[in-house]
Design a binder for these strands. Sequence first.
DNA 1: CCTATATATGAATATATGTTCATATAATAA
DNA 2: TTATTATATGAACATATATTCATATATAGG
Lengths: 117, 117
Amino acid sequence: MTDLCKCKQISDKEMQSIIQDMPDAGTMQNLADFFKVFGDFSRLKLLYFLSRTELCVADLSALANMQQSAVSHQLKILRLNRLVKTRKEGTVVYYSLDDMHIKNLFDLALEHLEEQK
Amino acid sequence: MTDLCKCKQISDKEMQSIIQDMPDAGTMQNLADFFKVFGDFSRLKLLYFLSRTELCVADLSALANMQQSAVSHQLKILRLNRLVKTRKEGTVVYYSLDDMHIKNLFDLALEHLEEQK
DNA sequence: CCTATATATGAATATATGTTCATATAATAA
DNA sequence: TTATTATATGAACATATATTCATATATAGG
């Protein structure tokens, strides 16, 4: 790989070291997938609402101003990524955040955006 | 909007309150766009390398095992999102992280992934 | 000026992704 | 059972996005 580098401003040793310390490809891919989930306006809205309180699909649909079907599809993605969990009561399914780290992520990203003004 | 809600497990008052506290749509969109940048394996790799040291395009290309053109395209996205900054020396362009919050984001996300095992 | 090198960029392509529509499933009530 | 309601899901469609290829730009050296 290093032989492709004609610039090579850093030594092979440094390159080796950087590559060795890197999380393995699987972890990096998981990390990218994790961020990707947050990288959508609709999902971000749903997560925000759920950060406030447990909500059923219909209420989420009303709050986010999205079709019920679209909400269900996005909730499925959030569920598969274990960001939300469900509780069923009759025909109503209640969703809530599965992990409170999520709020921290929000805050950190907002902080970053604030500093850019 | 609330009249679309047939489930309405929460009161109109609660809905109003949740919606009023929500960051405005522009901010939410910015937040989504911000996360979207991290939601790609290639960009995440580039950001990781840059979190270690300042690097030129050719070295990034070698480290990430990506074509030079692909690297340039992705670096442009990172630049437009002000995640990296550049320094030019002759024909060589050096890239580095523009903000150290990024490392915190990495760590927080990794922490989240760790807990899911 | 001409050549070589590092980087940037536009167009084309392939793939991924979000929404909609129609419909299926599950649970409850009559 | 039948009807109703809440939610889930598959297919189709439109859009977004990452990569590649070819080429442009910029800088340095001869």
